[in-house]
Design a binder for these strands. Structure first.
Lengths: 233, 233
DNA sequence: CGCGAGCTTGACGTTGTTCAACTAGAGTGG
DNA sequence: CCACTCTAGTTGAACAACGTCAAGCTCGCG
């Protein structure tokens, strides 16, 4: 499936999840968790988590970019959201009942930690503040996908693409200019429209001087106009 | 704003939230929470919670049906989901940072409890199992709206209306035949389409023998066909 | 009896999908 | 080193889906 690195203290030293955890729990508790955790490297296109499978681990993204996706009954793909590291990206389902709501797939090279849910819970049970923090991270995870949906569900394609570009620029690549790690087809699955429509819209924005589009390289030239398009739908 | 009933032991006796809570916490702890809680009655159209306002209370729906809604920049309404009692309907935002993501509005006569978040948290901090249960209820709340979105975001109107009808029938009214407490306009805001389109689609389903539609009264005659429409988009 | 809100219908233009044809780069194998 | 093929991207045209508009309907309420 993919190269599995050994648990490596060096990797965990600079870990964001460790930093947060150790504000609340003792280092030896973290190490106990770490022993039962897996750190795995994924390359573009590999599946990190599979929709419908029982989730027994909390999933934390150390580096890279992932997509949250689903396949509906007709087989068409569908992207819920895109997240960049560091972030909690899965496992909240473990709390409830257990089946993953969505699949996770690497969009770029990724490092991912799978943290054994039982041990995590065991530790969290003795530490309310830590539990609260976990809760916060999980609801935050849901929140961001809901916000994405809201911006997408009731607008037409111009506005949706504008939203996606603004989102990618602000929250993923954190730059007005970026090199897409998504294909046009993936953008289409994110926007809920056809690939051709994405291309038409991108080249329209390009013609109108809102964007600079050269293959995978995109630069937002006129942020305000893009925001206006996002608002007017 | 609305008629405010006094805290009434009788009302709380049959409360679902109490039943769940008291599996984990002591009765006197619950009573302490109850003292700082408000039970409020709402009638159709009244606003229970306002988007953007700081949330300081957990909101629990005792009886009735509510809609989760938002207003986008252009002022168009937008319904995230519909929930029936008993359910946790708001306040998960309190954990995070505080502003309500969405508004809540009564669709029918409703009884709602506002539970002071600080006291709830105080109690939950001393009781991990209770905290875990709360966490479960909150993630469940998000989950249901995500599931709704998924079914809606990437289908065309036929499929979306079919989904909404199936959802209302199964999860809200719990009957193949029901009397809508929503207007066509509200269904349109749920489905993300125009009011006219809702009407066209409903009467098409009626003509084709899938539904019986007489004003607000709807009966699903051919569940299988409706499911097929939901799947094929 | 008249008014207004919600509902219904059909016509028409816009938006978006589908299809088919074409281009460009990246392997692959002889 | 050159076909060959595969995938991603691009373009335009035809067609279907959907929103908008305008008109009329129905029912409840004053």
């Amino acid at each position: 499936m993919n190269t599995l690195q050994h648990k490596n203290l060096d990797d965990c030293e600079k870990c964001f999840f460790k930093a947060i955890s150790c504000q609340y729990i003792k280092t030896e508790e973290f190490l106990r968790m770490q022993e039962q955790s897996l750190r795995v490297h994924f390359t573009r296109g590999e599946e990190i988590l599979k929709q419908g499978v029982k989730s027994s681990h909390l999933v934390f993204l150390q580096s890279g970019i992932v997509k949250f996706c689903m396949h509906d009954e007709s087989g068409k793909g569908l992207i819920l959201t895109i997240s960049k590291a560091p972030a909690m990206i899965g496992g909240a389902d473990a709390i409830n009942n257990g089946l993953n709501l969505y699949s996770l797939q690497a969009v770029e090279e990724c490092d991912v930690c799978f943290i054994d849910y039982r041990i995590l819970l065991e530790i969290a049970m003795t530490n309310s503040l830590f539990m609260l923090k976990l809760m916060e991270m999980m609801t935050g995870m849901f929140k961001s996908s809901i916000l994405n949906f809201i911006s997408l569900a009731h607008k037409q394609v111009n506005g949706r693409i504008a939203d996606i570009l603004l989102y990618l620029s602000r929250s993923v690549y954190e730059n007005r200019s970026f090199t897409l790690s998504l294909t046009r087809k993936e953008i289409a699955e994110f926007a809920g429209c056809s690939t051709e429509n994405v291309i038409h819209t991108l080249s329209k924005f390009h013609r109108e001087g809102i964007l600079l589009v050269i293959g995978k390289k995109i630069e937002i030239l006129d942020v305000e106009r893009l925001e206006r398009i996002s608002k007017t739908g």
